[in-house]
Design a protein around this nucleic acid. Structure first.
Lengths: 187, 187
DNA sequence: GTTATCATGTAAAGCGTTACATGATTGT
DNA sequence: ACAATCATGTAACGCTTTACATGATAAC
């Protein structure tokens, strides 16, 4: 069972494990501080991935007793795991992520709505975009308290990605509001 | 069973059904011509959604006999379905889509790679971006052969979204290549 | 005539999320 | 004392995808 191939989530976890052994819970915290903005990992998901990775020999684990906290199972990446990770990292496969934009579904069918109902929709969307833009801008500027990650260059790159995306979306929103204010020029 | 709430996919299908009754297969074709670029739907997914929607009373279906093709089950949206759709369309809920960018995972851990291995990764990514940019640009320009959709205004809006996203990603890629050519200024 | 494509759908499996459980430590 | 949070994880569920099945036209 669990013959499935490794997913990007698997590799994100393997990548985090290259920083050192960790329990599932610790990986959850580490993920929040690192890959959260471009690959969110929930803890239940991490646990199931770790089981799968262990079955495949990409990680090993030991039970560690603790006092004052429940015992924990600490996972380490194996040589096999490192090999799989590096192969994936260097593979320029398409890795096509399906675009999923609920807001565009709403807009696509927006003619069903009262004309006045579109505005609050866009306003709420805009507020979210601006909030995330601020977050990314702060990240890109290096304001990352408690950041232990040695390769700050890559942290900045990923933050700049989010920042540019938010700016593009906001520019698009401006355009949308202009278009919706004008007449429908569709045939 | 199937107590689950409706998902954006459910509403995408309900939206398509407002254009007229259709079978699961026909919805698949219609979806490819309309919502594909911002909410891909696979046919098996459509069938399971239709079952769920029917159990909830959002659609009804009739069996239609055919000659020269297998019989088909044709679904129609109900008043209840239209009500649910309109409520969702007008709801400015967060609808937070988790960001999922495999390329950023790869970049985040790119220090594990040979320095020369990053270039082909980015080149391949760039090629995909440019291809999709062309597609979106053509869509936004109105070059949509056989497009039956009456609200071309919204088609253009969603196409412009994709176009701006691709442009932002390409600009970011330019920046990445400049940064990677320079020295690592991280601490 | 064989091959491909159309039109219709089902079955199986897995990825990922929401909800639940449990004991220790810390805050008020 | 009581509540909140920490640290650890499990269970159940459902969305979504990949693979499979089937007969009828259309193409070469």
């Amino acid at each position: 069972m669990s013959r499935a191939r490794l997913t990007p989530s698997s590799f994100a976890i393997l990548g985090l494990l290259t920083l050192g052994p960790a329990s599932g819970y610790e990986l959850g915290s580490l993920g929040e501080r690192t890959v959260q903005h471009f690959w969110p990992l929930t803890r239940p998901h991490i646990y199931s991935e770790l089981s799968k990775l262990e079955q495949h020999g990409h990680v090993t684990s030991i039970e560690v007793e603790q006092r004052g906290a429940p015992d924990k199972r600490v996972y380490s990446i194996t040589e096999r795991g490192e090999g799989a990770l590096d192969a994936w990292l260097g593979d320029p496969d398409p890795d096509v992520q399906r675009p999923r934009h609920p807001i565009l579904i709403k807009l696509f069918f927006a003619d069903r709505l009262d004309p006045g109902a579109v505005r609050p929709l866009l306003a709420s969307y805009r507020a979210g975009l601006e909030a995330r833009r601020s977050t990314y801008a702060a990240l890109a500027a290096g304001a990352m308290p408690g950041q232990q990650w040695p390769q700050n260059r890559y942290v900045r790159l990923t933050a700049r990605f989010g920042q540019r995306r938010m700016e593009a979306d906001l520019a698009w929103l401006d355009e949308v509001e202009v278009m919706l204010a004008g007449p429908d020029s569709g045939e």
